[in-house]
Design a protein around this nucleic acid. Sequence first.
DNA 1: TCTGGGGTCCTTTTGCCC
DNA 2: TCTGGGGCAAAAGGACCC
Length: 390
Amino acid sequence: MDAFYASVSLLTRPELRGLPVIVGGGGTRGVVLSATYEARRSGVHSAMPMMRARRMCPQAVVVAPDFDAYSRASDGVMEVFRSVTPLVEPISLDEAFLDVRGASRRLGGPRQIGEWIRATIADEQGITCSVGVASSKFVAKLASARCKPDGLLVVPPDDVVAFLHPLPVGALWGVGEKTEEVLHRLGLHSVGDLAHTPVPTLTRALGPAAGAHLAALAWGRDERAVVPHEPDKSIGAENTFSTDVDDPAVIARELLRLSEKTAARLRASHQVGRTVSIKVRFADFTTITRARTLPEATDVGRVVYDTAVGLYEALGLQRARIRLVGVRVEGILEAAEQVHQLQLGEREHGWRDAEQAVDRAARRFGAGAVRPATLVRPSGEAQDTPRQAP
DNA sequence: TCTGGGGTCCTTTTGCCC
DNA sequence: TCTGGGGCAAAAGGACCC
């Protein structure tokens, strides 16, 4: 999709069409999530700090994100994709790879399929998208980027190298700021430069995996298949405070909220995880992580929380100024695969039962209907995260 | 200028066992 | 008892993507 969040937000705010619009968090610390092309003309782009974006484009209208609307639009778009082929690999809410080799007989060549998808999505969702067609995933991805917005570009197999080589190295999927800097220091600016560099030079500079990978991509070699639905490897939640926090009680309360949120998502997806990790970002933006692997996988918020707090306390911080905390559960398995080892003298009912009861209450009365008392704040107290009404 | 939240993957370090 | 190294898994850090 083109400028997905911004385009979907404009559906309910048609009076803003044609204006520079930025979608981003209302607070002072947010970044740009999406911007219309009118705003991009002023240099605004996603991931840019909101403060800077407002300065660059003071006339822009800033709207808060509406993730429910984006999620609904995404469902509609993915449904269109799946009507073409079951081989759909979503990359995010607004983007997916489709392997259309098996659909040609029914729907015509890739160009016709692409145009049909574009027309159908414009018709059903009222937003534009761009389609790249190629014989590999990453060339298709670059092709779609090149024809944005509202475009379609087919790169036939014989044209791949000619298409790639003039592009800047930073255009490659997997080359970000740091890697680009390393490549520039080697005097490599275009994909063609990269292609004509000995592989050992690249692996020395970037490591064996990245070096070999980029060398292959520079010649258009990419064998990765379109894989529908890979299982989750980790599930987590994190939060940046609106202002830095040095009160351990506030940190602990936030770890509790994030632990419960993460565990609830595990239970909802019938999954459990073995490793609990926390993330702490200090006021100066340095970030650390700490992890502990449990004897047995869990989906219980209290277990996640106890582990997370233990990890935090083990840091031995003394009123450090904290910007962000996060909780993540890794080593995920299907709950059905997990066999619970019974202990002698174990209580018959525990936190798991309590939390399942909370899940049932939440389904009937809404998320947050029942929650730990420490997370129920006196009215009027400042909140760091907007929350549903109790 | 001041940097979100959801993730994945890779590399290096560390601790343990033999 | 000390020293060293290989193998392995877990932990930690960092780059990257949308």
